[in-house]
Amino acid sequence: MATSAVSSVSLSDRITAGIVALIIGGFLVFGAGLANSATIHDTAHDVRHSFGFPCH
């Protein structure tokens, strides 16, 4: 079924890629949305409000 699109890829490759994507993605979202630094906060201020991140 839906899995056929990635069936050519080995299981470990798929999981590795997925976990790498989750770690990098989590890091980026944390940086843009949650990081507790005044400079990052001020740069991303309007974005944090727009995305509904909890902010100051």
Partner: peptide, 26 residues
């Protein structure tokens, strides 16, 4: 600053979505 933060947040959410889709195999 807003553009930069949107690019970072967009890339982050996209990677999270792709990561979930890979791990869940959908």
């Amino acid at each position: 600053g807003t553009l930069l933060a949107n690019l970072v947040a967009g890339a982050g959410f996209a990677l999270l979505l792709a990561g979930i889709s890979l791990v869940a195999n959908h």
